[in-house]
Nucleic acid binder design. Structure first.
Lengths: 342, 342
DNA sequence: GATTAGCACTCCCCTTTGTTGAGTGCTAAC
DNA sequence: GTTAGCACTCAACAAAGGGGAGTGCTAATC
């Protein structure tokens, strides 16, 4: 069977209507809703075909139709038309630049959640491909050394290392010079075992301290790949009855609290990539099982220096995709430009 | 009317039974449950009295009784008996010491949530009364200076400050010495305007940098008073039907995501204080409206150096208070001792 | 051959109506 | 003071029925 133009129009009508009302859409409604001038009987025949082709389905006999995942997919791929934003809505979506990227991301995710009424998340930039700017050891007291690690993009990590051996201020100075001259400018991924061994040799009796510093670097990478995720509006899911039953809500809330699954989701999904960085996952398309009843829309923002991260929303499949995509694009552009070098 | 011993016994029976079953408790049940050897009719009379006195109430006519807030209050004040913990349960509640307090707190809150099956939270220590150990400015590049602030307890804050005026490495060194000699050892609360003015004078043309540093210190205080709260097991509330309806769940989840209300709760409540640091808030006793259907149990942990924080759980009023108190005490002691100087 | 009117049928949803059972309050007897 | 007995209340559940939206199918129409 072929998906001719008329079928497309009917499918579109069903989806649009369902997105608006949340009720299964019947043939009579479609008959009135479209400009096809067809009777409900004809529509019925066509809808039966569309069901057979898998684009729509019936919650039960003698109910109207609702879109299937396949139907939604066709919709977002070919039928969606971005709504131009109202001017006053745009006003509300303005990010203020601060000296901390973190703050801006938190702003962004809050705005996103309150603006769309869906649950929102944003990840910090993946900076492990970026270069070390600067490492510094400083003495806190006789037994403790503070390690500060700065990566391009001004992401900063701290670690306190306990030292057993005697360590003069001069030693610290030397180690600082050693660390910066050998590691400065390297990407975190570049620091390999050979280099570490070399460093340890040069450090002589303080090789255990070097080990600590390298650990700190590794920690910095690991910790933030997993955890630097900000969320907002998780409770928005209660607005959508199809997600608000205890079982599902609990799973989703848990995902937002643990953040682990979100992190995995983002990792899984960055590998792909569409023209403008916007990706849509409908139901089972998402690589995480918990989201089988949701749709997820993500966008990739690009900072200067090659840093990039993900911002996105999670909501019911019956989602205002047009609007979400618009809002995400808006935010994404702001993020992109805020931290680009002038 | 007086609360004689028999009434107390009956009340206790009602509460115990309700905690176990979650069902309203009838007179016949109490008659069997107690060792009073009274018929259900007598119990009924007594229960009518108890209701009049406000300790129990009826969800509807011809239902059994459930404890009122006042009843629960009496229970936790006078009737509760701590359950001694099973050995294998204790095994599961062991905190591992790491070099980051933050990590341990996260461990603690997770353990607490999974062990009690309620929603758990923990605040970072309030360290604004603690002393500055160490301030350090370092150059990142021509325009940016990194400020590192270390407070007793090894809490570390970073801020990047942009500088317009020329700043030689020597200047930085001087500023470092100036800052450490004048601010080192001071409590964050101690740094007043006079001192700041004095610092600015001494810094000469770099007074704006000093302003930036002071800002960073202020930021460090403010930011973490509000936000350093870790939570776990928010989705546990779905286990309790009395909290799991959409309206209430949404409010509670929101509280756990925003953290602001939790923070306020903790601030409100530290002023009071009981013998062993354990506090119980039943329903409307909590200073936050959102919790009117919950009970909250908190404990205050004490680290070395005067740092203290709050750890607690939020659950239904029908809560296993005995058990929760035991678990909290356990964790609290561990936290207390882990970071005490040997 | 495509379209449509007509009709029987299905199934959700809502309301009504009992029925059951747990529990109460009251009274009178012990 | 305590208890047996009884009428009464009310939530919870199930069964029954009407209404309504919507379908699929058939036969007539364009």
């Amino acid at each position: 069977m072929e998906l001719d133009e008329r079928k497309v129009k009917i499918l579109q009508a069903v989806i649009r209507n369902y997105l608006e009302t949340g009720e299964p859409v019947g043939s009579r409604t479609v008959s009135k809703y479209t400009d096809l001038n067809l009777s409900s009987a004809t529509i019925r025949n066509e809808m039966a075909d569309l069901e057979e082709m898998g684009y729509i389905l019936q919650p039960h006999t003698s109910a109207g139709r609702i879109p299937s995942d396949k139907g939604y997919r066709l919709y977002v791929d070919t039928m969606m038309e971005e709504k131009e934003r109202e001017v006053d809505e745009k006003m509300e979506l303005v990010l203020e630049k601060t000296d901390r990227l973190e703050q801006v991301l938190k702003q962004a995710v809050k705005l996103l959640a309150s603006n769309t009424q869906y649950a929102a998340m944003v990840t910090g930039p993946n900076y492990h491909r970026n270069k070390l700017k600067f490492i510094q050891l400083s003495r806190i007291d006789a037994e403790q050394i503070l390690t500060v690690i700065v990566v391009e993009g001004n992401i900063i990590k701290n670690k306190v290392i306990s030292v057993s051996s005697e360590l003069s201020d001069e030693d610290i100075l030397k180690l600082n010079i050693l660390l910066n001259s050998s590691l400065g400018g390297m990407s975190l991924d570049d620091i390999n075992l050979g280099m570490i061994t070399m460093l340890k040799e040069k450090a002589g009796i303080h090789s255990d301290l070097i080990a600590g510093v390298v650990d700190a670097v590794a920690d910095a990478i690991r910790q933030d790949e997993d955890l630097e995720i900000y969320t907002s509006g998780a409770n928005n899911i209660f607005r959508y009855p199809e997600l608000a039953d205890n079982q599902k809500a609990s799973e989703i809330i848990n995902m937002f609290e643990e953040k682990q699954p979100l992190s995995e989701f983002v990792k899984e999904s960055v590998s792909e990539g569409s023209e403008n960085g916007i990706q849509i996952y409908i139901g089972s398309e998402a690589p995480v099982g918990t989201m089988r009843d949701c749709s997820v829309v993500t966008a990739t923002y690009q900072l200067d220096e090659g840093l990039q991260g993900t911002i996105g929303i999670i909501g019911p499949k019956r989602m205002d995709y047009d609007r979400v995509v618009g809002t995400l694009k808006n935010l994404m552009e702001q993020l992109d430009s805020l931290y680009k070098k002038k």
